[in-house]
Design a protein around this nucleic acid. Structure first.
Length: 275
DNA sequence: ATGGCTTACAAAGTAAGA
């Protein structure tokens, strides 16, 4: 007789906007929420500049890095052993926007993709704005990759990160006023929908918070008072593959983190999986 | 507000973010 052992896995994704500047806030998050895995974006340092020690001290011995100088960069920090790690250059550049890690959970494998999708610059005309064209091409490359990966239907996969796109009407404070603002333009929203469909990804936030309710994970630094103006966008996402349907037990956006001292402009997004 | 601020950096101004 064998009883299948289940694992509870807590994952947090956070665009930290400089890990060297805000490692103290990361420690605060780890102590308070005790995730198994923390996915960071915009670490803004090279791998040898990453403050490993502070994570090791808290029991996070396993760190996968894709950092570059000054900008971008992602890191996945875990207290579960990382069985494999892989960087894919979806945009064709080594610009620190992705790292995949794999975990052995009993007889099952979990794959976790940590993304920092290009922001896309200012001008929403991709024919003149190269940065926006790059963002759209990056999303297309993700779509092509995950369409192929669909052949393993039982695979446990999670895609997290700063996708720099607020897909739905109530993922921004005013869909009308942001229709020509990069992060919420129709073409990006379309690309994100195609990416989601390509792997039948579940956007778990909207399983827990109805699509009719405003929900944000980012608030501009420029607001006089971010909380009272509350002009946010939901740019940070946690998506799960079909094999994880029904296995997501809890979801939270840690909005209070935006009010901490010297905050990131993004807040952590959390999910609990029962696998 | 055509972003009002914040970050990194061979800096005292520029590039980038979204």
């Amino acid at each position: 007789m064998s009883r299948k052992r289940t694992h509870k896995i807590r994952i947090i994704t956070w665009n930290i906007n400089s890990v060297r500047l805000r490692v103290g806030l990361a420690v605060k998050i780890l102590k308070k929420y005790q995730p198994n895995i923390l996915c960071l974006q915009e670490i803004k340092c090279q791998n040898d500049e990453f403050p490993q020690k502070q994570f090791h001290k808290l029991g996070y011995q396993h760190i996968a890095l894709n950092g570059i100088k000054a900008y971008h960069g992602v890191a996945t920090i875990s207290n579960l052993p990382i069985a494999n790690e892989r960087i894919i250059e979806f945009g064709g550049l080594a610009d620190g926007r992705h790292i995949e890690t794999e975990y052995k959970l009993g007889t099952q494998d979990l794959s976790l993709h940590n993304f920092y999708v290009p922001a896309g610059g200012d001008d929403p005309d991709w024919t003149v704005n190269e940065k926006f064209a790059y963002k759209l091409a990056f999303l297309d490359a993700m779509t092509a990759y995950f369409k192929k990966a669909r052949n393993k239907k039982t695979a446990l996969r999670v895609l997290v990160g700063d996708l720099n796109t607020a897909p739905f009407e109530h993922d921004v404070w005013s869909s009308k006023q942001l229709q020509n603002v990069i992060s919420h333009t129709p073409i990006e929203r379309e690309k994100l929908a195609k990416l989601q469909a390509a792997h039948k990804w579940d956007d778990i936030a909207r399983d827990f918070v109805p699509p009719s309710e405003k929900l944000y994970s980012w608030w501009s630094y420029r607001a006089r008072d971010w909380a009272s103006s509350d002009r946010g966008r939901r740019l940070d996402h946690i998506w799960t593959s079909p094999a994880l349907n029904g296995k997501v037990k809890h979801f939270d956006i840690i909005r209070t983190a935006r009010g901490w001292k010297q905050p990131s402009d993004h807040v952590p997004v959390l999910a609990d999986l029962q696998i």
